[in-house]
Design a binder for these strands. Structure first.
Lengths: 337, 337
DNA sequence: CTGAAAGCGCTAACAG
DNA sequence: CTGTTAGCGCTTTCAG
């Protein structure tokens, strides 16, 4: 393992010059620059992150907090974050916050304090004041994906706006009896995404002068199987079946489509369905949806974080836009034909 | 930020004793042990990983190499790895190896050499001799999930055995015309999982004296949409349609089920389908499958790695077992009734 | 069992 | 632009 001294010797300069040439901090003559570069490559020299981190206080490593990994949204955001960070020469260290409070505390009281990371990206985890405080105290920049997080630059979609748009799409097609598949208590933690999406749905109905019918609203855990089951109950009920359904996620929307099919209904003829996400599977089901691009959200979060690390303007709360993607799962209601 | 000196002072001992007490290396009197513990807690002291890493050469951080994150198998393995590592007080640093050769080289020539990790887990990435060598040269233990990897302890399922079992299940039900949905060139990299699964399929047919029919074998990219398309072609062909289908993954099997349905066929009456994985969605589709538990594979890999780090017996190549989970997507062929 | 002290490999004043 | 040098905060001999 070649050290900085070896490089200095081979290049015929001092270790300070090597450090400067390789890090780009401070000025170095072109000649020295080249000599160092050559020597480093030849010797296969790579700085030791521990030594560099100890001396400079910078680790070139970012901590990413996620509640789960095995889920389309989180995995996508993570991919966006890690690929962008890698481009910038940063490493990505992953901290999975389970429901376990003890473990969560351990992450904040041990893992994040051991100075392994320069900054933190929190993906859909609602940090409490104390947690934010402890990060600020360490002078670690923090950016949130999903928010808001008081005093923290965050990046988030407009959940209410998204579901209002989805609902309006259905209304504009002529639907009046519109069902809703949202979250359950378990999923309505952190930023209460399910609640916001429900609110947007209700606002859109309200604005259109449509009465809200609680019997048309069911909850699930954002997975296809639970939504399938919930939709079956909803659609199987002979009394006042909806002509359209909005689901708070595409996976749930797909579950609903499958439930409808299993009940012998045709989508969109007998039932229009709209989701939220533009999931990888949506196109195959012809699902109309509101797109949010988690991969891009991850990349954007990195951009915001790097600005913060470099001490540039904070670039506070930032809304990520969404767009309606119309496919073949929505149409006018039969009776309006 | 309290340092080790502060703790030493507060506990009335030397920094050496604090280090020993907190790391568990070397012996410390109970009295000192307690004093240190108390002082550390009181001051909120956490060792600096840079300083500790620099002095000891140990970072308590493991690098995990994955080809993709946003995929059920990898995300599951990753969850298993990270949760297990966290329990052991280790951090997880993620390196995503894209198809980009340049970036891959960068990971091996820069990222992994900067001494940020103590060891590496490679998940389904076929490291070449040079890459393995460069890790060994650094004295970094390496464990592979998916294999084999020459000279490296690996953990892997028996891909041929899995698909042989799946195929035998269909044969035992009476099927003779059994189709196969495998991978394509793009997915047949690294450990050639698609090839192995195809081999197992062919072996089972061969053993049963059934002729292999290339027209019954199609390729896809392990996703539901491509398998849906491929299955439609296969099943729509009027000449010699299969009575059963084995897919190299559950997502593909589900794609096939949906394709069959869209062609008006009933599963399992008109077509039996079996997959591999026991994916989260499989139960909802009643899919018969061969289970592999990626989360557990991740945990096991960590266990193997920790042994290696501690210099214990290597515990070489280790086969992970699989099991047949019979649900409702397979039955005897119609004409055998 | 404990303390003193010598680094670990690099960065960042500082002086030139 | 460059070299010298004093640490960064901890671990680990080595003596005691």
């Amino acid at each position: 393992m070649a050290g900085i001294k070896d490089v200095a010797q081979a290049a015929g300069v001092s270790v300070a010059t090597v450090s400067r040439a390789l890090s780009g901090r401070g000025s170095v003559s072109t000649a020295a620059q080249e000599a160092v570069q050559r020597a480093a490559t030849e010797l296969g020299y790579v700085v030791s992150s521990s030594a560099s981190g100890l001396a400079s206080g910078r680790t070139r490593n970012i901590g990413v907090l996620v509640p789960v990994i095995n889920h389309w949204f989180y995995a996508s955001v993570l991919e966006g974050i890690s690929s962008r960070l890698m481009d910038e020469g940063y490493d990505t260290t992953l901290y999975q916050l389970t429901k376990d409070r003890i473990q969560r505390e351990k992450i904040f009281s041990d893992f994040l304090l051991r100075q392994r990371v320069d900054a933190v990206i929190a993906v859909n985890v609602e940090l409490d004041a104390e947690e934010v405080q402890s990060l600020h105290a360490l002078d670690k920049p923090l950016v949130g994906v999903g928010g808001p997080l008081p005093g923290v630059p965050t990046l988030h979609v407009d959940d209410e706006g998204i579901s209002a748009l989805a609902t309006q799409h259905l209304i504009s097609l002529g639907h009046r009896r519109i069902g809703f598949i949202g979250g359950n208590e378990e999923t309505d933690v952190d930023f209460r995404v399910p609640t916001h999406r429900r609110t947007g749905y209700e606002q859109a109905l309200h604005k259109a002068g449509i009465q809200i019918d609680d019997n048309l609203c069911v909850g699930a855990d954002f997975t296809m199987p639970q939504a399938y089951a919930a939709a079956k109950q909803l659609l199987g009920n002979p009394a006042g079946r909806p002509t359209a359904l909005m689901a708070a996620s595409d996976e749930m929307a797909i579950g609903a489509i499958l439930a409808a099919r299993d009940l012998g209904m045709q989508v969109p003829r007998d039932l229009s369905v709209i989701g939220v996400d533009n999931h990888d599977l949506s196109e195959m089901f012809g699902l109309t949806t509101i797109e949010q691009r988690p991969h891009e959200q991850g990349e954007l979060a990195v951009a915001m974080l790097l600005r913060a690390i470099r001490g540039e303007e904070p670039a506070h709360a930032h809304k990520v836009d969404h767009r309606l993607v119309v496919r073949s799962s929505t149409t006018r209601p039969l009776d309006a034909a």
